[in-house]
Amino acid sequence: MNNAMNFSGGPGALPASVLRETRDAIEALPETGLSVLGMSHRSEWFRGVLDEAERNLRALLGIPAHYHVLFMQGGSSLQFSMLPMNFLRASGRHAEYIVSGYWSAKAPVEARLEGDTRVLWDGRAEGYRRLPAADELQLSQDAAYLHYVSNETVEGLEFAGTPGLPEVPLVCDMSSNLLAAPIDTERYAMIYAHAQKNLGPAGVTVVILRDEFARRAITGLPTLLDYRTHIAARSVYNTPPVFAIYVLMLVTRWLRDEVGGVEAMAAINRAKADALYGALDAEQGFYRVHGERSCRSTMNVAFRLPTPELEAHFLETARREGFHGLEGHRSIGGLRASLYNAVTLDAVNALSEWLGEFRRREG
């Protein structure tokens, strides 16, 4: 029951069937008789796991053959550095960044260590409550790349469209909404996502990289920080996070076989978001959603109550009622419900109903 009512921002909820299969695999995999925690990354079994995980991702997202799918480590934080190391340093060009929240603000800090970095738009002055309109971005045709975060988990903001110019490589951190809805992979030079939202447990980062873009990387990089190293080694240059990749494979099976694919998942996610925002909007004098309506995230719903004291009481009462992970991010406080793929519509409906009860009792 606790797992079913887990609204944590990350690591987030995992599907019940995946948790059961993972529990059994920790004791012994049916294929090998060994615990998944003790399986060699050089074994044929693990090569099969990597290959299936890649096949499933390609099928679910429509990833073309001229894109590489890499399983890496270090989360988005490492990608903030690796991206400019490979494609900005010594390029003779500048990189462009959209800063729309807590996480995207970290990316240009690392890029500035590697070369000319320009922030096209920064929502900090407005408290990161909205996303930029197209006419607010002064885009350059000669940029090395444009980087943005598709969904801001802290503030609960999500891009409805895709920014940028067709001729400029587009790079996106999709850590919190990859696999939540269909995407046009061909529009991107590179997509990356750490797993602990919709893909699986913490420890693995998926990188989807167009081959032509990968070949632009400079030479002379440290071996482990060169994307071409991981392409050549098929994600096994060093010891990968075997357990996390195994669970990611199970999650992609679940999404394919039990949910019916990414389009079906998107419809469920839309219903979840509509239910929760509807409950909050019904009590606007009591609950206040952080982001502007046009920019609201389907994955992360950030909101406030009239006072910090009432928020503390809300969290204490919610835990007693069986709702977990509703604390807001430390950077802005308040409250947050994350509606990742594994969070069921039943769980969201239960939370939505309880929000009304709490308002009537405490308002």
Score class of each variant (00 low, 15 high):
7 F>Q: 08
11 P>R: 02
12 G>C: 07
31 E>V: 00
45 W>G: 07
53 A>M: 02
54 E>L: 04
64 P>I: 10
80 F>C: 01
80 F>Q: 05
81 S>A: 14
90 A>C: 09
93 R>Q: 15
96 E>A: 05
104 S>D: 04
106 K>R: 14
107 A>E: 09
108 P>T: 08
122 D>K: 07
123 G>W: 05
127 G>D: 01
130 R>S: 13
137 L>W: 04
138 Q>L: 14
144 A>L: 09
147 H>G: 04
150 S>M: 05
152 E>H: 09
153 T>V: 12
163 P>N: 10
179 L>W: 04
195 A>G: 13
204 V>M: 15
225 L>S: 11
225 L>Q: 11
227 Y>D: 08
234 R>D: 14
235 S>H: 07
236 V>R: 15
244 A>Q: 03
278 G>F: 07
280 L>Q: 12
282 A>E: 15
284 Q>V: 02
287 Y>M: 03
287 Y>E: 06
288 R>T: 14
293 R>F: 04
300 N>M: 12
308 P>D: 12
309 E>W: 10
312 A>L: 12
313 H>R: 15
314 F>K: 09
314 F>W: 09
322 G>I: 12
325 G>M: 02
326 L>T: 11
327 E>I: 00
328 G>H: 08
328 G>W: 04
335 L>D: 13
338 S>R: 05
340 Y>R: 11
343 V>K: 03
348 V>G: 06
357 E>N: 08
363 G>Y: 13
